[in-house]
Amino acid sequence: MEFVFDREKNKEKIEELEFFIAENKDMPGILMPALQETQRIFGYLPLEMLQVISRRLSIPMSEIYGVATFYSQFSFIPKGENIISVCLGTACYVKGAQKILEEIEDQLNIKAGNTTPDLLFSIDSTRCIGDCSLAPVILINEDVYPRLKTDDIKGILDKYRKEV
């Protein structure tokens, strides 16, 4: 999924990062702190900002990519405001969790592991969350939705759309 990085909307954040880089440009081993700062400010590592880091610090993009992919806390895609976790444990699976997941993917038009372009939802598939007797189950943030049918999905998602 492509995310359009809005420079106008992120103007202040970009300035914050540029300021951090300018302040610490000469710090040895600056790349890690710069990536951590980017992740903190934006919630992920936008490609456009990695290019800024690359130019300012004269570090090739290939090297930055190598470092960023090594550490599990860095992400190249933003996480959505609402995180949907679809349980794919055995009980949920046999009760049709795969269909539920597909329905959510269809509704949001993204695949599991991704985030919607409006940053409202992310979909994760998880291992058993221990609510087998309520299968199939999904979690949205902290809320549990038990005994789901594919028809229920739209209504549930709408609830989170309205709140915003």
Partner: peptide, 17 residues
């Protein structure tokens, strides 16, 4: 403590490895 010894400590954070 006026002994002429300098020592500075900096924090560096890991990122989940």
């Amino acid at each position: 403590l006026g002994t002429g010894f300098n020592f500075d400590i900096e924090l560096r954070l890991g990122s989940g490895a």
